[in-house]
């Protein structure tokens, strides 16, 4: 049985992380995070890979 619960937690965390990152990147926030775009993209990739592994490849 695919673990939908893990997928939901992953998607919620991804959403909040990406939303926060997008705001920081586009709003010219004074909070400087080095290589923000790469950090965000990496986070998304980790979540997608985890989701793929748990939900689709290894049900």
């Amino acid at each position: 049985m695919p673990d939908i619960e893990d997928m939901i937690i992953g998607l919620l965390l991804t959403s909040f992380t990406v939303a926060l990152g997008l705001y920081l990147v586009t709003s010219g926030s004074e909070l400087y995070i080095p290589r923000m775009e790469e950090v965000m993209m990496g986070t998304v990739l980790v979540f997608v890979a985890t989701g793929y592994n748990n939900f689709l490849r290894n049900p």
């Binding site: 998607l11 919620l12 959403s15 909040f16 939303a19 926060l20 997008l22």
Partner: peptide
């Protein structure tokens, strides 16, 4: 479901931040 989480969820947080600062978010 995926349209809601993460797409719309990201969108509404982003929109809130543009419109009313961080208060709503």
């Amino acid at each position: 479901g995926i349209f809601n989480i993460p797409l719309c969820l990201v969108g509404v947080v982003y929109l809130n931040s543009l419109e009313v600062g961080w208060t709503s978010t």
